[in-house]
Amino acid sequence: MSSGGNVWGVQLGSSFTDAAVAVSYDEVTGNTFIVGSTFSTTTDSTYFSEEYVENYNDPNKEPIERCFIAVVNKDGKTVWRNVFGSNHMAKCTGR
Protein backbone atom coordinates (compact mmCIF):
# COMPACT_ATOMS: atom_id res chain seq x y z
CA MET A 1 0.00 0.00 0.00
CA SER A 2 1.25 3.44 -0.86
CA SER A 3 -0.32 6.65 0.37
CA GLY A 4 0.17 10.37 0.36
CA GLY A 5 -2.28 12.98 1.53
CA ASN A 6 -5.71 11.51 1.09
CA VAL A 7 -4.77 9.38 -1.89
CA TRP A 8 -3.47 5.83 -1.86
CA GLY A 9 -2.86 2.87 -4.10
CA VAL A 10 -2.65 -0.89 -3.65
CA GLN A 11 -1.34 -3.63 -5.87
CA LEU A 12 -2.34 -7.27 -5.46
CA GLY A 13 -1.41 -10.48 -7.14
CA SER A 14 0.66 -13.59 -7.50
CA SER A 15 3.80 -13.84 -9.63
CA PHE A 16 1.63 -14.84 -12.57
CA THR A 17 -1.22 -12.92 -14.13
CA ASP A 18 -3.75 -11.05 -12.02
CA ALA A 19 -6.25 -8.37 -12.88
CA ALA A 20 -9.03 -6.44 -11.17
CA VAL A 21 -11.92 -5.91 -13.55
CA ALA A 22 -14.57 -4.09 -11.54
CA VAL A 23 -14.85 -1.85 -8.48
CA SER A 24 -17.63 -0.71 -6.18
CA TYR A 25 -17.38 1.84 -3.37
CA ASP A 26 -19.33 1.24 -0.16
CA GLU A 27 -20.73 4.59 0.93
CA VAL A 28 -21.69 3.24 4.35
CA THR A 29 -18.32 1.87 5.45
CA GLY A 30 -15.93 3.68 3.11
CA ASN A 31 -14.58 0.33 1.94
CA THR A 32 -13.92 -0.45 -1.70
CA PHE A 33 -14.72 -3.86 -3.20
CA ILE A 34 -12.83 -5.15 -6.22
CA VAL A 35 -13.25 -8.39 -8.17
CA GLY A 36 -11.02 -9.97 -10.75
CA SER A 37 -8.87 -12.93 -11.60
CA THR A 38 -5.79 -14.44 -10.03
CA PHE A 39 -3.54 -17.13 -11.46
CA SER A 40 -1.50 -19.27 -9.09
CA THR A 41 -0.58 -22.75 -7.99
CA THR A 42 -2.21 -22.49 -4.60
CA THR A 43 -5.33 -21.19 -2.96
CA ASP A 44 -3.39 -20.03 0.08
CA SER A 45 -4.43 -16.45 0.57
CA THR A 46 -0.94 -15.49 1.78
CA TYR A 47 0.31 -15.26 -1.77
CA PHE A 48 -2.29 -12.62 -2.40
CA SER A 49 -0.56 -10.12 -0.20
CA GLU A 50 1.01 -6.82 -0.97
CA GLU A 51 4.42 -8.28 -0.20
CA TYR A 52 6.05 -10.80 -2.44
CA VAL A 53 6.18 -14.29 -0.98
CA GLU A 54 9.36 -16.09 -1.96
CA ASN A 55 9.20 -19.60 -3.33
CA TYR A 56 5.47 -19.85 -3.16
CA ASN A 57 5.48 -21.50 -6.54
CA ASP A 58 5.14 -25.21 -6.38
CA PRO A 59 6.72 -26.70 -9.50
CA ASN A 60 4.66 -29.83 -9.00
CA LYS A 61 1.41 -27.95 -9.42
CA GLU A 62 -0.19 -26.46 -12.47
CA PRO A 63 -1.29 -22.88 -11.89
CA ILE A 64 -5.04 -22.38 -11.70
CA GLU A 65 -6.88 -19.22 -12.56
CA ARG A 66 -9.60 -18.25 -10.11
CA CYS A 67 -11.85 -15.35 -9.38
CA PHE A 68 -11.14 -13.17 -6.38
CA ILE A 69 -12.97 -10.60 -4.32
CA ALA A 70 -11.06 -8.18 -2.10
CA VAL A 71 -11.86 -5.28 0.19
CA VAL A 72 -9.69 -2.20 0.62
CA ASN A 73 -10.58 0.10 3.50
CA LYS A 74 -10.82 3.89 3.46
CA ASP A 75 -7.12 4.17 4.35
CA GLY A 76 -6.05 2.08 1.39
CA LYS A 77 -5.28 -1.08 3.31
CA THR A 78 -6.41 -4.45 2.01
CA VAL A 79 -8.44 -5.85 4.90
CA TRP A 80 -9.40 -9.15 3.34
CA ARG A 81 -9.52 -11.02 0.08
CA ASN A 82 -10.87 -14.35 -0.96
CA VAL A 83 -10.69 -16.68 -3.90
CA PHE A 84 -13.58 -18.46 -5.54
CA GLY A 85 -13.79 -20.68 -8.55
CA SER A 86 -13.24 -24.23 -9.61
CA ASN A 87 -10.29 -26.37 -8.69
CA HIS A 88 -10.80 -28.31 -11.89
CA MET A 89 -9.15 -26.78 -14.93
CA ALA A 90 -11.12 -23.60 -14.70
CA LYS A 91 -10.13 -20.07 -15.47
CA CYS A 92 -11.48 -16.66 -14.60
CA THR A 93 -11.03 -13.44 -16.51
CA GLY A 94 -12.75 -10.14 -16.96
CA ARG A 95 -12.10 -10.03 -20.65
Binding site: N6, V10, Q11, L12, D18, E50, A70
Partner: peptide
Protein backbone atom coordinates in the same frame (compact mmCIF):
# COMPACT_ATOMS: atom_id res chain seq x y z
CA UNK B 1 2.36 -0.20 -5.33
CA UNK B 2 3.99 -3.57 -4.69
CA UNK B 3 7.55 -4.83 -4.88
CA UNK B 4 8.37 -7.68 -7.24
CA UNK B 5 5.08 -7.73 -9.04
CA UNK B 6 3.95 -10.68 -11.08
CA UNK B 7 3.60 -10.81 -14.84
CA UNK B 8 0.53 -8.65 -14.30
CA UNK B 9 -1.01 -7.51 -11.04
CA UNK B 10 -4.32 -6.09 -9.99
CA UNK B 11 -4.23 -2.51 -8.73
CA UNK B 12 -6.57 0.00 -7.11
CA UNK B 13 -5.73 3.68 -6.89
CA UNK B 14 -7.54 6.70 -5.55
Amino acid sequence: YRKNSGVEDAFLMK
